[in-house]
């Protein structure tokens, strides 16, 4: 299974994501410059956190026009796995690969802390190794993680099992229904505000994020074999 991590000007978690893939999965991973419009060689794409284009205009609003995003849409269409973390989630929303929009945190401040999340759906390619309803610890670090969608969309997300993670206990940004991460209808595109790549060893404060990468690998290689 081959991973790509697109790098936009202003991405700053690209190396961290690549490190997680290398160290946890021991699979090949390449950083792909945003001007590269071809991701055909990869099975999974991780859109990293950071401040693409300085988050000028709106978070993720400029990155969606990068050539690499056409390739990401194509990959999603082919059923490859797409994981958008933090700024990556914001880019997925702006590009329409996931429904909804992001607002500034309701307390108006950037927040960096380790949060408790509840795994709402463990049937996705990203969460197969978690227990349904399990509480896990993942770090967040964002100023705009206040997920919003209209009632109709929310109802659909709920009914179709697209809400993958919810904040448990304290909601750190005011997101609708405590949403921390959602998938598309098909289930192969996950966007979440917390950072699984920052929680892969106990010394980081939590190692619960490792299973997200392991879940992706198990799902993919279960379907396509270890290639």
């Amino acid at each position: 299974m081959r991973f790509a991590v697109p790098v936009f000007p202003g991405s700053n978690c690209d190396e961290d994501c690549a490190k997680a893939v290398r160290e946890i999965l021991d699979r090949p991973v390449d950083l792909v410059w945003h001007k590269d419009g071809n991701l055909d060689a990869y099975d999974a794409i991780i859109l990293p956190g950071g401040f693409s284009y300085g988050d000028y205009l709106r978070t993720g609003a400029l990155a969606r026009f990068s050539p690499v995003m056409e390739a990401v849409a194509k990959a999603a269409d082919k059923g490859k796995l797409v994981l958008g973390i933090c700024n990556g989630f914001q880019v997925l929303l702006e590009s329409g690969l996931l429904p909804g929009a992001m607002r500034v945190n309701d307390h108006l401040k950037f927040r960096c802390s380790i949060q408790t999340l509840r795994v709402e759906n463990n049937q996705s390619p990203f969460t197969g190794l978690y227990q349904a309803g399990e509480e896990i610890q993942l770090p967040i670090a964002h100023g705009e993680g206040n997920y919003y969608c209209d009632q109709e969309t929310l109802d659909k997300l709920e009914v179709q099992g697209q809400i993958i993670f919810r904040y448990s206990g304290q909601n750190p940004n005011g997101s609708v229904a405590g949403i921390a991460g959602i998938v598309n209808r098909r289930g192969n595109v996950l966007g979440l505000m917390p950072h699984p790549e920052r929680a892969i060893y106990d010394w980081m404060g939590s190692s619960d994020g490792a299973r997200m990468f392991q879940s992706m690998l198990r799902y993919w290689e279960g379907m396509h074999g270890a290639a």
Binding site: G49, K109, R111, C112, S113, A141, H195, R198, M204
Partner: peptide, 16 residues
């Protein structure tokens, strides 16, 4: 104060 600072990016922070 420090919750407003990203103190974990680069995934190298062992003591926060």
């Amino acid at each position: 104060v420090y919750e407003q600072y990203d103190h974990m990016v680069r995934t190298s922070t062992a003591v926060r």
